[in-house]
Amino acid sequence: MLETNNLYFEYADGPSFTFPDMKCVSGESLLLLGDSGKGKTTLLHLLAGLLSPTSGTVTLAGQEISRMGQQERDRFRGQHIGIVFQSAHFVQSLNVIDNLVLPQYLSGRTVDKGAAIAILERLNLGHKVKAHTNQLSIGEQQRVAIARALVNNPDVLLADEPTSALDDRNAHEVISLLEEQAALTGASLIIVTHDQRLKDHFEKRVTL
């Protein structure tokens, strides 16, 4: 379960944001909708523990991320949070399967190639295990990025503008995939976007 309280963030020499309190239990989906400049990315980074709030708290799985030290936060994020970024990026020197087991290794879990391959197969990418990431199509890259976010069985799956660059059909496909995979993993799904097309798709939403 993810919960925020009086979340406030101020950039050293820039804007400040106050965010509404929000709550998302396991298995639930939450849409965070906002136009540019409303602090969407800032919020996502606060939820992921990539930024520390100026005041207020972020609590995930009973632990207050906002109070952890740097190293503890990195590890906690690796183990409990999967992030899908707007465009898919990979460690270029590693192939698909190595990119997939990377979160396992980096978050201090035991490397389980079998589990990673199972996820790839679930996303119809079983034949791309040994491929290089730059040999994949954009759609395949997006799916591998989703697979990577799922590989540690996260409590929360955070997606940053996953559909903004896609047409209606593909946008719909990606959203269903995210929902489906989050449900399979038992993770809460939080999508941060300005994409109004998604508004009707989610029951629970917070507008910034």
Partner: peptide, 18 residues
């Protein structure tokens, strides 16, 4: 060149020390 890659690794749980 790999700045984004390195940041990505941090987002996946790598510490600064790593």
């Amino acid at each position: 060149e790999r700045k984004y890659e390195l940041a990505l690794m941090r987002s996946m749980g790598a510490s600064r020390q790593t």
